[in-house]
Nucleic acid binder design. Sequence first.
RNA 1: GCCGAAGUGGCGGAAUUGGUAGACGCGCGGGAUUCAAAAUCCCGUUCAUGCAAGUGAGUAAGGGUUCGAUUCCCUUCUUCGGUACCA
Length: 803
Amino acid sequence: MKKYNHKTIEEKWQKFWNKEKMYNVNTQNETKNKFYNLVMFPYPSGDKLHVGHWYNYSGTDIYGRFKRLQGYDVMQPIGFDSFGLPAENYAIKTGIHPDESTTNNIKQMRKQLKAIGAMWDWSHEVVTSSPEYYKWTQWVFAQLYKNGLAYRKNAPVNWCPSCQTVLANEQVQDGTCDRCSSEVTKKSLTQWFFNILKYADQLLDHEGLEWPEKTVTMQKNWIGKSKGCNVDWLVKDSKLKLSTFTTMVDTIYGVTFVVISPEHPLLSELITEENKDSVQKYIEKAKKKSDIDRMAEGKEKSGVNTGMTVVNPLTGKEVPLWVADYVLMNYGTGVVMGVPAHDQRDMDFAKKYGFEIVQSICNNNDETFVYDDVDKYNVKGKIVDSGEFTGLSILEGRKAITKKLESEKFGKETTQYKLRDWLISRQRYWGAPIPIVYDPEGNPHLIPEEHLPWVLPTDVDYNPKGASPLATSQELVERTEKIFGKGWRPEVDTMDTFVCSSWYFLRYPSATEETVPFNIETTNKWMPVDMYIGGPEHACMHLLYARFIHMVLRDLGFTKVKEPFKKLVHQGLITKDGAKMSKSKGNVVSPDEFVEKYGSDVFRMYLMFMGPYTEGGDWNDQGITGVMRFREKLWNTISTDAVIKEDLKSEYETKLNQTIKKVGEDLESFQFNTAIAALMEFLNFAIKSGIDTKGKKALSVIIAPLAPHFAEECWVTLGGDGSIFNQAWPKFDAKKTILDTAEIAVQVNGKLRGNFKIPRGTEESSVVDQAADLENVKKFLEEGQIVKTIYVPDKLVNFVVKT
RNA sequence: GCCGAAGUGGCGGAAUUGGUAGACGCGCGGGAUUCAAAAUCCCGUUCAUGCAAGUGAGUAAGGGUUCGAUUCCCUUCUUCGGUACCA
């Protein structure tokens, strides 16, 4: 028996896999059972890989290797999502070009990714900041543009007046700039949008996707479709009309005020002279507050009177028009009808400013209620004090009132979404340039495909004053004029990095192709992604954007596949001392020292043994010795000759079959912790019973996804041929997974009083008799009369005794 | 505020079509081995009580359904995550 030297052994096998190109997939080849195993690609940060990445990629690789052993042609690509803010900030700080720092970080991370010993297919690597990739990101933009899905409109950005620059949300701290602490304001810029709303209904349909229920719910809530009614209110002494959106038009007789958002474009025309000052002040104050600030103030409402009144189209009643920042401009119409009797927020507002509270609906017990759950009350309540509609059920009333409003042209049934169109413009340097140029009249034109990649200029000031960095490039202007003519100007904004990551899964299988973004035939062969693994924080952004872009390209005929990600799993978060790991907190745990000391196999097994994959957990290294001991014992057992003890042979068979079954099921469902526990249990038994070569081989194969280098070494030690990953997952005999004896628990009134063994399948009467005969059971049975006996075959007897 | 998830030994965690709570591992205690230590092996390890057999309590707290509840229902508390006051 040789000593197990993880360092040389792991190095040896990584070299072997590399040399044999074992995990490089030729996507041109025919395949009957492809398996596209995908993990969300990393951002190449200067922090390098931490244990959280290892956790993420270990689970991915375990699943991929498991699928390979099950006979699938597995493709498990990796790449880098390399455009983004951190590299740009680093450049501003150090003067090092983002391209240089990014390239260095990628080099570092490649090395670390290789140390995992994962079956990455490096032949299909993508780097989103390379011209070879972003050329096609620009092509994606072009497809949307040509099909009317990309358009320009004004949208506000965070603006630091002191730095003269646009700030990301994360750069705004309590309303101030995180660099210079001056107060951040809003500035309106013309920006590019993708019309994701057009796909809202399709995105709501998750049919056929094997996704966590929670994620589907989150996306549905994010899209937030709701049916309701727009109602028009005439403004008294004015020619203006205000439209409100409501999902509860049935309460329109209970309206006692109307509230308008401080950002509403018509607001300036809706203030009486005497209220001008106070409203102006209020608007100024609201402008400075971010949406998060507004929310942080909790239930405390604020508002101010415009002095105007509006007219209820059904009752003719005049109600006051107020301004309040609890009304958001970016949802509905930016104007809300106030129904304090049945809406909590309106109730809070009315109580604070003394508005009348008028009931217009009640439940079936004639009680009033706050209308916070549409579905709950649809069926239950009815309309009261509402003229001709009184007495109708809420649902009937809603229909009747909508109909009346429509016939009198004061309203219209409408559908609203919470989802907004996707703003893709960024006033940043380190991103894919938007492939647009403007003619001398300022009209946008798509840059023809022959000029792609429309390369990112290098002669720029990363920290410009007042405009996007690309605006400082002389070369970009010259290039534009040279190609398009005098007076033509380039677009200077770049694309949101989410655009880069919204189609990379289409690029992977075709990554070696230079003339197309992706080969349609290859795509139809390899898509959809069969398993997609990544953090739950991407539920509403990346996972929605990627589905959207995929749907657009699908509708344009580039793929026949309906949805990009068939199965989805979210790994849990690994924290350190309860906090997310970050350089700024100084709690980043590097995997490198553990890999050095224990090896990749032990380290990844330990990470997986910490708990369920989807839960994550707080990092500590206290238990890693247990996994280390497990590997040592397993190595000793496999590399030592032994025979199975005669008296334990049948139990051994059962245990082995049980373990093969259990480990297979657990790997399939990402319960790696219990898979490892089952392997440990089997090893503990095998040390007692002895194990033959057939058993050792089976054991090596089922542990291979978890400890790939170790398994390879076991395989050659056992005289196996080639790589263990060309073996098949062992079959188990279902009949042999069940022991022929069973243990019966005996309860009296549900309390355990004893147990005994029976041959499986013993007759009920016999088991009950034996149970009643146990000394400790007798004692309790004598205390009263047996009124009932419950028998669960091969499991339990419960005597119900009455005293 | 709203939405979602989760609370089990000293610690990480296991067990749910309702059927013996604490698998597996860490740690700890005892023993073997050793001149000694490390490593390794064996035994024990939810708490209380008892020499023991056993008994009582116990899965965040309180109630309910049931012969039987970590598992189902209601209420409350705590922690974590998400958040765009969605009319």
